[in-house]
Design a protein around this nucleic acid. Structure first.
Lengths: 227, 227, 227, 227
DNA sequence: AATGAATGAGTGTTCATTCAT
DNA sequence: TATGAATGAACACTCATTCAT
């Protein structure tokens, strides 16, 4: 039923719908977001929506796909120029957290995807993880990290990033009691504090078999302090 | 409006409703789960629901709370008897994965809670993390692990468990292509393969500054030290 | 199904239910008043209600009946001892307004009765009007008032009392703009200002053919009309 | 959410809904009138209602407003051409009773408004009363009536009209016992008998200080007016 | 290409009433 | 006499989707 736009005007309308949908999904989640809210924000008639998308799920999936591209691009751009795997990892995480802070939609939309469109979620995570796996494999070949299983490690890294991002970016102030910040749209602009990022990288560095590369205060580390 | 049951019959009805709700939420998620589906499955009239719960959100929150208790109990029971922090960690994760496999509701309900009842989600994660933090602090005092920041580490562990659990328990077969397993109710009985658990623990062991305790094949650790 | 109470305890319970119903109907109106609210306020179980009343409409009708008795008693007590019809009228109205101020339920319940139980409403008004008619007839025989049709006059008096009561007792401050006092339960304690009562009685005095008896400032009419 | 119709079709649909609502509210009152009954009678889908009205209360308020305009227009049209205040009053009342007979909804809807939408009720009465007040003030300046307080008199007139209208128009036959006419839809076509209108106007004429202008059989007025 | 109108199945929730104890 | 449990029909309202223009 829906079709690709054939005119410049159509292309523009489709774009407006996607942009509006990102805002609306981010603000309200999938279920509370109504097609009419999307078309309202896009400034088009309700029927116009179905010119470009078959269903509400359709535009949602496209949006998840799009966010996936953008976050991966942000991460690899962030990591570009890093001179070691861990440096790349750190830069990638930093980019990921920055992206999350700027687009809290990512978290919300993606996590909601689990129930709404499980395939979209799997694809999203899988693609990011694949990037990790490749990087880890290269680093292992170069002896840069230990011989940890890259698949398991990649999923673990994914989980760390997700949870730290949720905790420090989405929730914000560590001391905020639950309930202090109930408005989900209000909390999307925090940063991961530097020491948290440091500790997280030390954690990851150790995990990957190169504690000394992550900077350290680690007990059994031969040269560095304590000695 | 809702009240606690005052008779045995009422207690039983309330229990049936909670059990039904767990099933229905797990199968369909919060939004697709309708009160009438819950009451149907519980075998009671629709109005009966409101004798014991004020709103649909109410029973959802109670369920999240309940699941939180149960998973934490499962984890600490699993970890009981461990002789080291890492052993406890491993046993705790194993218990967590087992619980997840038996109650896929946990994942689905909890993750959806983010949009439906953010406080419930935060409380859930925070409580589990607090358990981690205590354990890590004790272990650090005993010199069992490195001096990693316990809060950051705890959230990282939480994320690892979540993601590994999602990947290997909920999704099941690593090679299953997305789309092969779209029915969310069909995939709740997998186990985390032993080697994945092993690798995960090596990852965590390294992260916590005691790679050698986690068992290893690590490059830079020729024949364990510590001897 | 319902029965008269056979024990002192039952009499008491029935009384509690009626008292609770008056409060609840007054506060919420017929439709918003639920049986459970009534039983809650009465401090009895929900089922107990149906021991004494067949339906919600039943207790409502009984309440209207009861209020009717009470307001008529208040009015005739107020009027007792008056030495002329107009004095009696004034005292009766004053009593009526006082009763209204103390029991705003009267107005609300009675007016709602029009749709809920039209018979109850008619009976209520008719009974009060019959009292007026009798009084007017007597007064006419005594030459105390003009020979106005007592039935029409009685209904007119009823209407005047109702409207003045609504305007000055229920609504309160004459200058309050609509909306300033939207809470219907908050405005039941006003009084009809003395000059309003005075003017009203002058109006009625003239209507009944005895302007001079009502006190007057009437234009050029030292002793009746114009001549 | 609701919007003004943008096409002729929409205008027509909205009109049908209002007309249906007037019938349904008049027949059943606010609470028994369900949106689905309204849409059924209008011959549109249930959802269509919410295209033009936000809530059931919304259309109710609009209806009260509309009825207020119409009754005031009917009254001033009825009074147009009267050569004295009392003549105008009589014509106005006659128009009011005629309108009531043709639109019994007025009474029912407006009286129920007291509980449903108190502001609407106050506005309704206040607007009519303001018309009375203006007329009375003019008449007083012209010496046409006594110097009665116009505000109090206006509310009194409002009450008289309401009550006489209820008694003779809505209830119909004076001798009908309560219960004979329980169907509220069946009684909307009566007229106020001429002698009742006559007596009512004599009552009012006396009240306003000009008994002789209202026609009379008054004791102290041996051979009619003015001569 | 665009749109406003229309729909009807579906939602969470309420409540007068019945009944077993 | 008293009650808490249970019910199911009913309600106001929402929304993804279709369609005529």
């Amino acid at each position: 039923m829906s079709a690709s736009p054939r005119t410049a005007r159509g292309v523009e309308t489709r774009r407006k719908l996607l942009a509006a949908a990102e805002r609306v999904f981010a603000d309200h989640g999938y279920h509370e977001a109504s097609v009419s809210r999307i078309t309202d924000r896009a400034g088009v008639g309700q029927g116009t929506f179905y010119l470009y998308f078959d269903t509400k799920l359709d535009i949602f999936n496209e949006l998840v796909e799009d966010l996936n591209h953008r976050v991966r691009q942000a991460m690899s751009e962030g990591a570009r120029g890093a001179t070691s795997r861990l440096e790349a990892e750190r830069a990638g995480f930093a980019a990921f957290f920055r992206f999350t802070a700027e687009h809290p939609a990512l978290y919300r939309v993606v996590r909601e995807a689990e129930l709404v469109s499980p395939d979209a979620l799997r694809l999203h995570y899988t693609r990011i993880v694949e990037g990790y796996i490749d990087g880890l494999r290269d680093a292992a070949e170069d002896g840069e990290i230990g011989d940890i299983d890259p698949t398991v490690a990649a999923w673990a890294l994914m989980g760390i990033g997700e949870m730290i991002g949720m905790r420090w970016v989405l929730w914000g102030d560590p001391d905020a009691a639950p309930g202090d910040d109930a408005d989900p749209t209000a909390s999307g602009t925090r940063e991961v504090p530097p020491h948290v990022l440091d500790e997280m990288m030390r954690f990851i560095g150790g995990a990957l078999g190169r504690p000394e590369l992550a900077g350290d205060r680690r007990d059994g580390a031969p040269e560095k302090e304590e000695s």
